[in-house]
Amino acid sequence: MAFHKINVTINDDLEQVVVPSNMTLMHMLRESLALTGTKNGCSAGECGACTVLLNGEPVNSCMVLAVECDGAKIVTVEGLAGKKQLDPIQEAIVQEGGVQCGFCTPGILISSHALLKRNPNPSEDEIREALVGNLCRCTGYVRIIESVKVAARMQSVTT
C-alpha cells in the first residue's frame, strides 16, 4: 500500500505527515499526531464523536481519508479555545452542565461551534437538527441544547 506525504494545517500549526492510503483523518489525528481529543466512537460516521472542522465545515473524521486532507485546514477540539479563554460554547457547556462522561463532548462542541458560526442565533429546532449526528448517552441532550442557546447569547454580547 502506498504512503502519501501530506501538508495539513491543524489548529493553526502546519504539519507534514506521511499517511497510508487507508488511514482516516481520525486515525491520523489520534495516532500520528496524538491529538486524542477527537474520539473514536463507531468508525462509521454515525456517532459524531470524531467530528472536526475540515476547511471550516464539520465532518466525521472517521469518514475522511487523511490523504484527502493535503493542503486542508483542520480544527479539532484542542484548537477551539483561544490562548487565554475558552470558546463560548466550551464556556457555556461547562456552565450549563452539558458534560457528563465527556466522550461525545468534543464532537458536540465542534458541531455546535460550526452551527453558531453559520447561524449566530439558532432556534431550538435548528440546534436539535444540527446536533442530530452527535450521539450522547449521558445527558439526554437537554443541557447540551441549553448550552448552545447560552453560547449564542454570550457571542452576541461579545460581538
Partner: peptide, 12 residues
C-alpha cells in the same frame, strides 16, 4: 437533502 443523516455527514 436535509433529511439525510446529519450535518457533518452531509458535508461529505
Amino acid at each position: 437533502c436535509r433529511s439525510v443523516a446529519s450535518y457533518p455527514l452531509r458535508t461529505r
